[in-house]
Amino acid sequence: MPRSFLAFAVVTLLPLPLLLAGALFGGWAPWLALAYVTLVMAGIDEFQPALSYDGEAAEQDEADLLSQMLAGTHLVLLLITIWSLAGGGPGLFSLSGIALFLGAGLFFGQVSASNAASLVHRQEPQMRMLGKALYISLLSGHRATVEPYVHHVYVGTKHDPMTSHEGESLWQYLPRALLGGLRTAAKVEKHRRASSDLPIWHLSNPLLQYAGGAVTMLLAALLVAGPGGLVVFILLCAFAQLQMTIRDYVQHHGLTRALDANGQYVAVNATHSWNAPHWLSALWMLNATRHSDHHANPAGPYTQRAAPPRGEVPTLPHSLPVMAGIALHPPTWRKVMEPHLEAWRDA
């Protein structure tokens, strides 16, 4: 698949003018954006899942530039969407407003969330802070703690609330994952501060930053569009959080780490994540679909993530967004995924 700066930029930024036009003027523009990130993307991924590419992958500086562009665009789109859906534009209950809500919400839950998940692992404080800010803007600040300090440490074990169990439906998983994420974030930050002389109320406490950032965003929504803006913002955040949680459900479903002779979990490897080779959704989600490589090299440039061949790693039968949609209906999920899981284990 193409891995250049231009390829990632075109695929991720293409629907934004349509979404902004829809927020300001309504009409068919948001429907075109929604069709692109759903029907067009799923269709191309299904019929042309792989695309060869011989050029060099984008360097870290180029990847960082796009990450920063997407973060800035995220905030602008979020505020304009809140204003528009709260009554400044078409409104939430119009046809164009429904398309805007879904299209912008998919951008927040798939592009912005993928950007944040990559940035919170970075060594550079300013890039890590940018990832934290993205999560906070979607009322999910605790993920900046859970992602690097819980999920990447305990993935595939009972200690990771983001790992879904075999036979567990999405609707059984959701409350466990959401509440477990909050609990483990609080536990980790409490442990991290135990060795510090600073009081718990010091501003360096990430939990205070998450809470303060959430209050700031809620006030911003209120100032931008009044009480209606507050409602719209909460609904957009809930939609984005649902997508993040479904992605967690799909990408580790039923994959567990065995215990070694000493009773310790084996090290995380490429067999503990479901991957998807589909090139267009990979560009759209900043290679989050190449999930094994994300766990192996979380701080590396997302543009350079490797995609091991089918058979070497667990590989989803369809693209990640399509599998996320299937997960919403547990009987269909079981019909599609459980035989696939068994086949992988047999192989």
Results as ranks from 00 to 15, higher is better:
residue 6 L to C: 06
residue 8 F to P: 02
residue 8 F to K: 09
residue 17 P to D: 06
residue 18 L to H: 03
residue 25 F to V: 03
residue 29 A to S: 14
residue 34 L to E: 06
residue 44 I to V: 15
residue 49 P to T: 09
residue 50 A to T: 15
residue 59 E to G: 15
residue 62 E to T: 02
residue 63 A to T: 04
residue 65 L to D: 06
residue 65 L to W: 14
residue 74 H to K: 10
residue 74 H to I: 04
residue 76 V to D: 00
residue 86 A to F: 11
residue 88 G to H: 05
residue 89 G to Q: 01
residue 91 G to P: 04
residue 91 G to I: 13
residue 91 G to Q: 10
residue 95 L to H: 05
residue 103 G to Q: 03
residue 117 A to N: 14
residue 121 H to D: 01
residue 125 P to I: 01
residue 126 Q to S: 11
residue 127 M to Y: 08
residue 134 L to T: 00
residue 135 Y to A: 12
residue 139 L to R: 03
residue 140 S to T: 11
residue 142 H to K: 05
residue 143 R to F: 15
residue 152 H to Y: 15
residue 162 M to T: 04
residue 171 W to A: 10
residue 171 W to E: 10
residue 171 W to Q: 13
residue 174 L to Y: 15
residue 184 T to A: 13
residue 191 H to W: 08
residue 191 H to P: 00
residue 194 A to T: 10
residue 196 S to L: 14
residue 200 I to C: 07
residue 208 L to Q: 01
residue 218 L to S: 04
residue 223 L to H: 06
residue 229 G to A: 06
residue 232 V to K: 06
residue 233 F to T: 00
residue 246 I to E: 01
residue 249 Y to T: 04
residue 251 Q to S: 11
residue 252 H to N: 04
residue 263 G to H: 13
residue 264 Q to C: 06
residue 265 Y to G: 00
residue 266 V to E: 11
residue 267 A to N: 12
residue 269 N to M: 09
residue 272 H to E: 07
residue 281 S to D: 07
residue 287 N to T: 01
residue 291 H to I: 12
residue 296 A to L: 08
residue 297 N to D: 12
residue 305 R to H: 03
residue 306 A to H: 06
residue 306 A to E: 15
residue 317 P to F: 13
residue 319 S to P: 01
residue 327 A to L: 12
residue 331 P to S: 12
residue 332 T to S: 04
residue 334 R to M: 09
residue 336 V to C: 07
residue 340 H to K: 08
residue 340 H to V: 00
residue 344 W to R: 07
